[in-house]
């Protein structure tokens, strides 16, 4: 009796060889479900330059992005009824050749980003401005997408 207890093999493991696999699969699924939930709960960036913030008020969407050192001429912005595309090139003017660099952290290069908006906008009324290295694009909502107060008659 004592020996049998020492080799205490779980009976269900033999009764259904796929039972254990099924249990493992469920565990993995749960793990990933939690992982995905965790991601959407946090604000995960798309990882595409430039990083953007989007907000809205009752009249418009506002898209902001940090583009230090860039001027309006370096940027190309276009909008459709439900999307916005921002592209450009950040250039860093070269310094004299005889300078000795201690740190070079600022980066130059090209970028292109497209975002889909959750509602319809009026592309003809889109306005963009850049100040202190921050680009702000104001995308007025189309009349049909604006919230409307309904009067109860």
């Amino acid at each position: 009796m004592i020996v049998r207890r020492m080799f205490n093999t779980p009976a269900w493991g033999w009764r259904s060889p796929f039972g254990e696999l099924e249990r493992m699969k469920n565990q993995v699924d749960r793990l990933f479900e939690g992982y995905h939930k965790g991601l959407s709960g946090r604000q995960q960036s798309a990882g595409v330059f430039p990083l953007i913030n989007v907000s809205e008020d009752k009249d418009a969407y506002r898209v902001r992005t940090e583009l230090p050192g860039m001027k309006a001429d370096d940027l190309d912005i276009s909008a459709t009824a439900d999307s916005l595309a921002i592209s450009g090139e950040r250039k860093i003017a070269p310094e004299d050749e005889e300078v000795k660099y201690h740190r070079r952290e600022r980066e130059s290069g090209k970028f292109s980003r497209m975002i889909k908006l959750s509602g319809q906008i009026d592309p003809s009324k889109v306005e963009a401005g850049i100040a202190d290295g921050i680009l702000t694009v104001v995308l007025p909502k189309s009349e049909s997408a604006k919230p409307r107060q309904i009067k109860i008659g």
């Binding site: 940090e66 300078v99 660099y101 740190r103 952290e105 600022r106 980066e107 202190d132 290295g133 921050i134």
Partner: peptide, 22 residues
Amino acid sequence: PVADIFETESAITLLADMPGVK
């Protein structure tokens, strides 16, 4: 802020990206 720092015989120059700062 990310920065570039370089030096010549006569001066040290520092460039830093600080978007949004007036």
